[in-house]
Simulated assay, not measured.
Amino acid sequence: MTSLHVEPSGRARKPLARRRALLGAVVPVALAAGLLGGCASSSSDEPAATGTQTAAAWPSGVTPSATPTDQFTRDADGAVTGITYPGADGETALDLLLGVDPTAKVKGTGKNAFVVGIGGRTADDAKHEFWSLEVDGKQAQVGAGTLKTKDGETITWTLATY
């Protein structure tokens, strides 16, 4: 019996290279904006955010100006409650999420992908938690694996309850 081996097409590789280039250019700006916004509303008695990811967790060729955890929002105890990142023409919200948080947990693939963990925090079914996806402040109408983003959009994941 013969087996068939299929190589990934060049087309499949181009979005990854483009994503890396876009993230390398956009992430430092988004991080700076997020840090400036966060500084304006934080008080000195809040605990400092700490992270376990290092720059080595980023895709090859992407050199962030800070660690990926700077994009996370956290509660008073330092637990991750969300993440925000810029959209990129033609890239899915899921692909971009995995680019900024390679440790994100996903059940299923493609159109059936369901994000269950971000920043090391898994949504707790017992607490009726889930990761909610928004684009420019509006609830997404399709899943992260289907949602094609655009340059200039703001993609936000928030730990929510039902």
Results as ranks from 00 to 15, higher is better:
residue 141 Q to G: 08
residue 97 L to F: 04
residue 150 K to Y: 00
residue 61 G to T: 01
residue 84 T to W: 10
residue 103 T to A: 15
residue 35 L to I: 15
residue 15 P to V: 12
residue 148 K to P: 00
residue 109 T to Q: 11
residue 9 S to D: 08
residue 137 G to P: 00
residue 87 G to W: 05
residue 61 G to P: 00
residue 157 W to N: 05
residue 41 S to N: 07
residue 125 D to A: 14
residue 79 A to V: 15
residue 22 L to S: 10
residue 124 D to R: 06
residue 19 R to L: 14
residue 64 P to D: 11
residue 144 A to F: 03
residue 2 T to W: 07
residue 103 T to L: 12
residue 140 A to M: 06
residue 89 D to V: 02
residue 110 G to K: 09
residue 74 R to F: 07
residue 28 P to R: 15
residue 160 A to C: 07
residue 72 F to D: 01
residue 23 L to T: 04
residue 24 G to W: 10
residue 67 T to E: 13
residue 108 G to N: 13
residue 100 V to E: 01
residue 71 Q to W: 01
residue 102 P to V: 10
residue 22 L to N: 04
residue 155 I to S: 08
residue 146 T to Y: 03
residue 96 L to E: 01
residue 112 N to Y: 12
residue 89 D to W: 06
residue 4 L to T: 09
residue 153 E to Q: 15
residue 19 R to M: 13
residue 86 P to H: 03
residue 90 G to R: 02
residue 1 M to H: 05
residue 7 E to M: 11
residue 118 I to A: 05
residue 91 E to N: 05
residue 140 A to Y: 02
residue 22 L to D: 08
residue 35 L to Q: 15
residue 139 Q to L: 12
residue 29 V to G: 11
residue 36 L to D: 10
residue 93 A to N: 05
residue 70 D to F: 10
residue 125 D to C: 02
residue 23 L to M: 14
residue 2 T to G: 10
residue 121 R to D: 06
residue 153 E to G: 02
residue 21 A to H: 11
residue 159 L to T: 04
residue 31 L to G: 15
residue 115 V to I: 12
residue 88 A to L: 09
residue 156 T to D: 07
residue 62 V to H: 00
residue 67 T to R: 01
residue 36 L to N: 10
residue 130 F to A: 08
residue 89 D to M: 07
residue 11 R to Q: 07
residue 132 S to V: 03
residue 118 I to N: 05
residue 24 G to A: 12
residue 99 G to P: 11
residue 148 K to Q: 08
residue 19 R to P: 00
residue 160 A to Q: 07
residue 114 F to H: 14
residue 52 T to S: 12
residue 136 D to E: 06
residue 24 G to I: 04
residue 69 T to W: 14
residue 23 L to N: 02
residue 139 Q to G: 03
residue 146 T to M: 13
residue 158 T to G: 09
residue 78 G to E: 07
residue 104 A to I: 02
residue 144 A to Y: 02
residue 103 T to Q: 13
residue 39 C to Q: 14
residue 44 S to M: 11
residue 59 P to I: 07
residue 58 W to T: 01
residue 34 G to D: 11
residue 14 K to V: 15
residue 47 P to D: 13
residue 105 K to I: 15
residue 117 G to D: 06
residue 118 I to R: 09
residue 128 H to Y: 09
residue 33 A to M: 14
residue 16 L to W: 06
residue 60 S to L: 10
residue 123 A to N: 08
residue 139 Q to E: 15
residue 92 T to L: 13
residue 143 G to N: 08
residue 159 L to W: 04
residue 51 G to H: 04
residue 103 T to F: 09
residue 41 S to L: 14
residue 96 L to C: 06
residue 22 L to Y: 11
residue 1 M to S: 11
residue 154 T to G: 00
residue 130 F to L: 08
residue 153 E to Y: 00
residue 33 A to D: 14
residue 126 A to C: 04
residue 17 A to N: 00
residue 153 E to C: 03
residue 109 T to P: 01
residue 2 T to S: 12
residue 67 T to Y: 12
residue 57 A to G: 03
residue 104 A to C: 14
residue 155 I to Y: 02
residue 13 R to W: 03
residue 20 R to S: 02
residue 147 L to D: 03
residue 88 A to H: 09
residue 85 Y to Q: 05
residue 139 Q to C: 02
residue 162 Y to A: 09
residue 36 L to T: 12
residue 29 V to W: 13
residue 34 G to M: 15
residue 130 F to W: 12
residue 117 G to N: 06
residue 43 S to L: 08
residue 148 K to N: 02
residue 124 D to W: 03
residue 110 G to F: 09
residue 144 A to I: 04
residue 65 S to E: 08
residue 114 F to K: 15
residue 53 Q to C: 01
residue 21 A to R: 11
residue 123 A to G: 01
residue 88 A to V: 07
